[in-house]
Design a protein around this nucleic acid. Structure first.
Length: 792
RNA sequence: GCCGAAGUGGCGGAACUGGCAGACGCGCCGGACUCAAAAUCCGGUUCCCUCCGGGGAGUGUGGGUUCGAUUCCCACCUUCGGCACCA
C-alpha cells in the first residue's frame, strides 16, 4: 500500500475529467423525450481578485449537490462564468495602472485554475463572461426589448451620487447613507438617469414569493424592501388657489384629527403655495436649504419647518388647517404631502409640539372613534373603510396602495460596463440602436478615470454616431450599465451560451429553467435576487420565456469570517491555493463543510485541517485493508453491515431532505471507526465500499482512487448512489430507557416489539428503578421500543 | 423604534416529530510503541459531590404548559441581520 498522496491523485483524476469532458451536458434536441434533469447554480464570481474561503464553501456545497444528483440519475447542468464588468476591476486598474480588461482576464485565469484544482464538477463549455461582446450584445438586446416596451426609461430625477466613485448608485447600494463599495457619504443629485420600471412588478414580485422555496428571512427582506402599504388617497383642497392636493394615508380613520398639513421641501407645490404670499422668500429659502441638506443631517430627526400662510380644507369636515413646509415629509413617497394627525402619529406629534400646533384626539383608549362626527363609537379598523367610502362618494378620495420600492436606476458614469445602445438625436430624441448594429462595442480607451462626466463622453470616435432614424448627427449614450444588469440574466445564457441569433433559444431555456437549486450569499437578497426576478417576469411578459421565477429553491451559505469580518479578496492570510498545496483539495473540501451547518457563519481557523487529512489517511488505510477481504456473502447482517446501511440512510436523508452537509461527514466517520475496529468482519469490504461511495461528493479524487483499489473498473462518479436495505435498519434488540418521574434511572436491552405490559414489567424488574419507586405509583407512560416512565 | 434570526462542554458543533443532552471532530489528560521524537494505536474528558455503589445540577436569564422541554408558550438579556421621519 502506497501512502496517501493527495497531489498525485488529484492531478490524475482532474486530468481524466477534463480529457473526457465528464461534466459537460449537451442540450436536448427538439423532440427528445424529456429526461430527469437538474439545474444547479451558485452565484458567479466577480473577478476582482482570486477566490477566498467563502467561495470555497459556496462552490463545494454546489459540488456536493451536483454529484449527489448526478448519481441519482439526473442530468445536472452546473455551469460557471464571470461577473466581469464593474467598478472594482476599474478601480484596481486606476490604482495600480494597467487596463481593466487585462486585470479582469488575468484574475479570471487565476480563478479558473483554482476551480480546476478544487476539482469542482463544472461544465466549462458553457462559460460566459459579462464583458465579452458575445455576451453583452444580448444584454443590450434585452435592454432594447425592455426599452421598447416602456420598461426602461430615462428621466431627470434626484439620484444617489457617490463623490469618490463618481457615479450614480441604485437605492439598493446605498447602505446607511454610504456607498456600499467605498463607504463615502452619498450625495443627492438631480441628473438624467436610466431606470428600469421594476415598480410595475411590485405586486407580482410580492405575490410570487408564495410560489418559491426560499428561506423565509430572505422573503421577508424582499417583502419589506417592496414595502406595499394599503391605504387611501384623499384630496385636500386650497380654496383660494382652486388647487387640489392629494395625500396618501394608511390611517383614514384619523382624518378628523388632522390639524395641519405638510408639504415636502422638494415639492413643486412650494412655489405654487408661496406665490404672492408675504413670506414667500422665507418659505422658498427654507425649502431650498432643506432640500439640499445632506441625507445624514436630515436623518437627525429634529423637526424644522415653515408656515406657508395658506390653508387646506379637510374634506371630512371642511375645517381649514394650516399648510407647512417641512423636511420630515419625503418627496419620493406617497404624494410628497401629508395630512398631519399629531394625536396619533409620533412625527406629527413632535412637529406640533415644536411649533405649538393643536392636537385633537380622535381614537379613544378602547380603539373606537371620538370627535369624529357620525363615526364616533366606530372601531378604528372599520372606520378606515367607512370614511374612505364616504369620501369616495363625494369624489374626495379613494383606496390606494403605495410601495417603498423605487424604480431601479441602472446607468453608471463609468467606463468598465456594458454600453447602453441609445443614440440621442436632436430631432428624434433617444433612438435605440437597431438590432443589426449590436453590439455597441465598448471602445478601448486609455483614460478611463472618472471626471464627473462618463469617460466615454470624451471619446469622440465612440460618441459621435448618426441617428439610426433620420441619419442626422447624433451622440451615443455615454453612461454604461450597472453590473447588476449583466447578472440579471446570465443564468439564462448558460442554457444556450453559443447562440448568435438570440440571447437563448426559448425552448432550451424553458427546458432547464427554473434553476432547481441556487446557492449564494444573503447579501444579494434585495439586489441581484430581486432584479433577476424582475427580468424573468418582464421577459415572460414579452414572450421570451415560459416561466416567471428564476430560482425555484434558494440556499444561503454562511460567511467565512476572519477576525469577525467577512472574508474578501482584499484580505490576505488565507489562500486556498496554499491550502491545496499543503493538504490537498479533498481535505479542504471536507474541512470547510465539516465546520458546521452550511448556512451558518464560520470563524476561519486552520485548526483541524490536519485532522481532516488524518481522517482521509485513516480511510485510505482501512479501505486498503478491506480491499483484500473477500466480498460479503449475500444477506450478511453483522453489526458492521447494519451500520453501513444505517449510514447510507443517514447521509442520503441529510443531503436530500435536510440539505445539511456537516452531519453526513460525521456519519461516515462513525462508519470508518467501526470498520477499523472490525477489519475482518464479513461485511468489511461492503462497509469500505459504502464509506468511499458516500464520501465521493465531498472528496471526489480520493474516493475515485479508492474505488479502484476496491477492485472496481467502473467510475464512481457515474455509479448509482447506494441504496439502503430497510430491513437492515431494524434492530432485534433495543435499548429501553427507564425513567422514574422523568429522570433516567436505568437502560436495559430488550427484544424489539414487546407489548406495553411486557415493557412495564421489565422496567419494574430493574433494581435501579426499584430503588426509586417509594410511594404510590400514579401513572406509567410507555413509548414502545424506546422508553418507560413511572410516575410516583 | 419596528421586523427577523441565533444563544448547548475549554472550542466547532450533534440531538430532524416533546422522549437517553453533548454524536462527530478539535484541544487536553493518561497509556502502548520508540534510545528519543514524529506518525500511529488504546483509554479518559459537561460541572459539582462521592463511602466509587452512586447522587445532584446542567442547553443565555426568569417563569409557564407537560409524566417528560435544547425542542412548545410568555417575559427579559445578549449578539447578528433587515428597515428606519415610508405618512
Amino acid at each position: 500500500m502506497d501512502d496517501y498522496d493527495a497531489k498525485t491523485i488529484e492531478r490524475k483524476w482532474q486530468s481524466a475529467w477534463e480529457a473526457e469532458q465528464v461534466f459537460h451536458v449537451p442540450n436536448p434536441e427538439p423532440g427528445d423525450a424529456p429526461d430527469a434533469h437538474f439545474y444547479m447554480l451558485e452565484m458567479l464570481p466577480y473577478p476582482s481578485g482570486s477566490l477566498h474561503m467563502g467561495h470555497v464553501l459556496n462552490y463545494t456545497l454546489g459540488d456536493v449537490v451536483t454529484h449527489f444528483r448526478r448519481r441519482h440519475g439526473f442530468t445536472v447542468l452546473r455551469p460557471m462564468g464571470f461577473d466581469s464588468f464593474g467598478l472594482p476591476a476599474e478601480n484596481a486598474a486606476i490604482k495600480d495602472g494597467g487596463h481593466p480588461l487585462e486585470i479582469t482576464e488575468r484574475n479570471m485565469e487565476a480563478i479558473r485554475e483554482q476551480m480546476r484544482r478544487m476539482g469542482w464538477a463544472i461544465d466549462w463549455q458553457r462559460e460566459v463572461s459579462a464583458h465579452e461582446p458575445t455576451y453583452y450584445r444580448w444584454t443590450q438586446w434585452i435592454f432594447l426589448q425592455l426599452f421598447e416596451h416602456g420598461l426602461a426609461y430615462r428621466k431627470e430625477a434626484p439620484v444617489n451620487w457617490c463623490p469618490v466613485d463618481q457615479t450614480v448608485l441604485a437605492n439598493e447600494h446605498v447602505v446607511d447613507g454610504r456607498c456600499w463599495r467605498c463607504g463615502s457619504i452619498v450625495e443627492a443629485r438631480n441628473m438624467a438617469q436610466w431606470f428600469f420600471k421594476i415598480t410595475d412588478y411590485a405586486d407580482a414580485l410580492l405575490d410570487d414569493l408564495e410560489t418559491i422555496d426560499w428561506p423565509e428571512r430572505t422573503k421577508k427582506i424582499q417583502r419589506s424592501w417592496i414595502g406595499r402599504s394599503e391605504g387611501a388617497e384623499i384630496i385636500f383642497s386650497v380654496r383660494e388657489l382652486d388647487l387640489d392636493i392629494p395625500v396618501f394615508t394608511t390611517r383614514a380613520d384619523t382624518l378628523y384629527g388632522a390639524t395641519f398639513f405638510v408639504v415636502a421641501p422638494e415639492s413643486p407645490l412650494v412655489a405654487t403655495l408661496s406665490e404672492g404670499m408675504e413670506n414667500a422668500e422665507e418659505v422658498r429659502s427654507y425649502a431650498r436649504v432643506a432640500a439640499a441638506r445632506p441625507t445624514e443631517e436630515r436623518e437627525q430627526r429634529e423637526k424644522t419647518g415653515v408656515f406657508t400662510g395658506r390653508h387646506a380644507t379637510n374634506p371630512v369636515n371642511g375645517e381649514q388647517i394650516p399648510i407647512w413646509v417641512a423636511d420630515y415629509v419625503l418627496m419620493d413617497y406617497g404624494t410628497g404631502a401629508i395630512m398631519a394627525v399629531p394625536a396619533h402619529d409620533e412625527r406629527d406629534r413632535e412637529f406640533a409640539h415644536e411649533f405649538d400646533l393643536p392636537v385633537v384626539q380622535v381614537i379613544a383608549e378602547d380603539g373606537t372613534l371620538v370627535n369624529s362626527a357620525e363615526f364616533d363609537g366606530v372601531n378604528f379598523e372599520e372606520a378606515k373603510g367607512a370614511i374612505v367610502a364616504s369620501l369616495a362618494a363625494a369624489g374626495k378620495g379613494e383606496p390606494a396602495i403605495n410601495y417603498r420600492l423605487r424604480d431601479w436606476s441602472f446607468s453608471r458614469q463609468r467606463y468598465w460596463g456594458c454600453p447602453i445602445p441609445i443614440i440621442y438625436c436632436e430631432h428624434c430624441g433617444a433612438v435605440p440602436v437597431p438590432d443589426s448594429d449590436l453590439p455597441v462595442l465598448l471602445p478601448d480607451v486609455t483614460d478611463y478615470r472618472p471626471k464627473g462626466q462618463p469617460p466615454l463622453a470624451s471619446n469622440e470616435e465612440f460618441i459621435n454616431a448618426p441617428c439610426p432614424r433620420c441619419e442626422g448627427p447624433g451622440r451615443r449614450e455615454a453612461d454604461t450599465m450597472d453590473t447588476f444588469v449583466d447578472s440579471s440574466w446570465y443564468f439564462l445564457r448558460y442554457t444556450d451560451p453559443a447562440n448568435d441569433q438570440a440571447p437563448f433559444d426559448r425552448r432550451v431555456a424553458d427546458y432547464w429553467m427554473p434553476i432547481d437549486q441556487y446557492i449564494g450569499g444573503i447579501d444579494h437578497a434585495k439586489g441581484h435576487l430581486l432584479y433577476s426576478r424582475f427580468f424573468v417576469k418582464a421577459m415572460n411578459d414579452l414572450g421570451l420565456l415560459g416561466f416567471r421565477e428564476p430560482f425555484q429553491r434558494l440556499f444561503h451559505q454562511g460567511w467565512v469570517k476572519l477576525g469577525g469580518k467577512r472574508m474578501s479578496k482584499s484580505q490576505g492570510g488565507v489562500s486556498p491555493n496554499e491550502l491545496i498545496d499543503r493538504f490537498g483539495a479533498d481535505a479542504i473540501r471536507i474541512y470547510i463543510l465539516f465546520q458546521g451547518p452550511a448556512d451558518q457563519d464560520i470563524d476561519w481557523t486552520p485548526d483541524g485541517i490536519e485532522a481532516t487529512v488524518r481522517f482521509i489517511r485513516r480511510l485510505w488505510r482501512v479501505v486498503h485493508e478491506a480491499a483484500v477481504q473477500p466480498a460479503a456473502p449475500a444477506g450478511v447482517s453483522t453489526p458492521l453491515a447494519r451500520k453501513a446501511h444505517e449510514t447510507i440512510a443517514r447521509v442520503s436523508d441529510d443531503i436530500d431532505r435536510r440539505f445539511v452537509f456537516n452531519t453526513p461527514i460525521a456519519a461516515v466517520m462513525e462508519l470508518v471507526n467501526e470498520l477499523s475496529k472490525a477489519p475482518h468482519d464479513p461485511a468489511a469490504r461492503f462497509a469500505a465500499e459504502t464509506a468511499v461511495s458516500l464520501l465521493q461528493p465531498y472528496t471526489p479524487h480520493v474516493a475515485e482512487e479508492l474505488w479502484g483499489v476496491l477492485g472496481h473498473s467502473s467510475r464512481l462518479w457515474e455509479s448509482p448512489w447506494p441504496v439502503h436495505d430497510e430491513a437492515m435498519l431494524e434492530h432485534e434488540t433495543i435499548e429501553l430507557v427507564l425513567q422514574v418521574n422523568g429522570k433516567v434511572r436505568d437502560r436495559i436491552q430488550v427484544p424489539a416489539g414487546l407489548s406495553e405490559d411486557e415493557l412495564v414489567a421489565r422496567a419494574k424488574a430493574s433494581e435501579r428503578v426499584q430503588a426509586h419507586l417509594g410511594g404510590t405509583e400514579r401513572r406509567v407512560i410507555v413509548v414502545p421500543d424506546k422508553l418507560v416512565n413511572i410516575v410516583v
